[in-house]
Structures are given as C-alpha cells and as structure tokens.
Amino acid sequence: MSYYFTIFSPTDTPLFTHEFGTSRSSGDGIAHFSPADRHLAPFILHSALDILEEVQWGPSSTAGSAPMYLKHIDKYANNYVSCWITGANVRFLLLTRPRDEVLGSGGGLGGQRGSLAGGRLGVGGGSGVYRPDAPATEEAVKNFFVDVYESWVKTVMNPFFHAGNGHVVKSPVFRARVAAAAKKYL
C-alpha cells in the first residue's frame, strides 16, 4: 500500500507533504505509486476538501463534541482519503492506495478502459479485501493521525510559525516524526 499525506492550511495551501509506503507485512516503507497515480494524488486530495467541508459542517454523526478524526471521507477510483481536522481548521489528509492485488481484480486508473466487455471487473473495487471502514484500518489511521497531531501541536507552538499565513513546514525533525508514526502504525 502507498500513502500520500498532506497537511492543508485553512486556506487550502499545502503546508507539508509526505509520501510513504506501508511497513506492515514486509513492506519496504517506500511508496509505489504508478506515474499516473502519482500525478493525480495532489488533485485527489485537493478535491477531497469539498467533501471534507461538507462532513465538517454537516450534521454531526456523534453525540456531543465534534470529532477531530473524520475517518474515511472520500474515494476516487482506488484511492481512499481519510481526514483529521485540528481545532484551528488545519486539515490532515491521508490518501491510501492499496496494492492492486488487495483490490481483487485490479482495474487501476484507466486500466483496461476501452474494452466494452461490461462490468464483471472492477465493480467490487473497494469492497474486495481492502476496506477503508474496517475497524482495524480506522484505528491504525487514527493512531497515525494522533501521533502527527502531537508533533503538529509542537510545531505550531513556535511563535514564528503561522499556519494561517501559509508557512510551509520545513523542519526535518517534523518529517522524521511523521515517518516514524507511519512506520509504527501503517
């Protein structure tokens, strides 16, 4: 599985972007996006902001306080987007691209388009083996987000850093922390 993680400022500017692969089940921790997927990932995350806003401002699904972890919110083809939202309206978006084998019959992006054979393939995409709303997956992503959030809080406590002004996170320590969290949970 490959992941693409981005932190968006309240004005939709990406502040931090990190790309990594799974470290579970003998994964090497390196993202294996196909070139097409790789190009589309920023577009997908950016377009997911539309859905995010709707979930954010829409009727709450939980009683009481609004949750920070919004779980799986959007999908495009075989790319799944999960979200965490901080109190200052900074959005963490994680794009998950499962390996084709995990999806059962892989009809990747524009994979076998052009064959008019009809829909025996690819219909079950997502409901195959990888499920974004499975409790284990949700929990793992949540743990990852919690760790990143902790580092993020430390970053924004820096008086010279203003996320709202579109300051990009350059700290290598922050990146290392995110990578560590990724390795630990995803």
């Binding site: 083809a77 076998q112 388009r113 052009g114 008019l116 009809g118 219909v123």
Partner: peptide
C-alpha cells in the same frame, strides 16, 4: 457517472 467508468461500459471517447 464514475460507476460507468469503473464498469468499463464505454470506450475511450465515451470515457
């Protein structure tokens, strides 16, 4: 619409 694309019901022009 995206279901049409996922099911490969159309050719390249249709897609």
């Amino acid at each position: 619409g995206s279901r049409i694309l996922e099911m490969n019901l159309v050719g390249p022009i249709g897609a």
